[in-house]
Amino acid sequence: MLETLLEPFAYDFFVKAVVVATLAGALCGLVGVYVILRGMSYIGHGLSHAIFGGFAASSVIGVSYVLGAGIWGFASALAINRVSRSHRIGADAAIGVITTASFALGVALLTVFGNRGPSFDAALFGSILGISSTDVWTLVAVSVLTVGVVATRYRALLFATFDPEVADVSGVRVARTDALLMLVLSLAILSTLSVIGVTLVAATLVIPAVVARMLTHRFATMLWLSTAIGAVCGLVGMNLSYHLDVPSGTTIVLTGAGLFVVVLTLTGVGRLGRTQTRSGTPAVL
């Protein structure tokens, strides 16, 4: 039994994959706290699809996907922001148009110019095999940056998330803080894309944070708890992926979903009400 569990650790690629999945899970868990408390689950979902367009375009042109998809993703985030501010179109509709169009463009590009096969599936659902050293270093750099931002802007981020208007008159630069969070969110999605996949990134943002919310009413506790839950999901999910031969994004998300059901059963359904956001709509997708 133990031998079977330890067997894949003999392979370098698997050790790399486990490290990346654990770190990716932790990173998404950390950023996800802000995503669910701001009622932005849908933005996470949309942004990952938008980034797929950039991913496809950069693979067709032959430039680094980190660069291509990164610029594309941040541009999408800014476009969403801009379109949603013109009050005629709501934010949700703006996200719907921009991100699905970007996703469709990505699919069209890859269909016309080829490059389907493993990388296409990997981009959608995540892959153990597709992890390069660039992926690892990108993820490490983004994680360091994210922790740095969350630590040094801790109260400004909290205040701007809890009550942007009062934060604004209390000396917090809300617009700048929000832009910083969008940047960190875009980078987190981009850097975890290869392990978790476009279609499932949103779940890794949402699930650990929701589970953490059910376990605490303290913000500081929720932050580290969500990070830890994300890491555990990444670690366990990646191992399951190897043994079950299922895409890693799938097993990471299913691990989280399993944990969610267990915690929900133990704490009672009533606690789910806690995850409701400012607008009163449930944050769960």
């Binding site: 205040f159 209390s170 919310r213 605490t216 009413h217 913000f219």
Partner: peptide, 26 residues
């Protein structure tokens, strides 16, 4: 009425938001 009461903060955490300039979380 405008406050999101489901937000996970304690009274202490909420009051401390006023000192948003500090570069350490605690």
């Amino acid at each position: 009425e405008t406050v999101s009461w489901n937000f996970p903060v304690t009274v202490g955490e909420c009051v401390l938001m006023a000192r948003s300039g500090r570069l350490l979380p605690w």
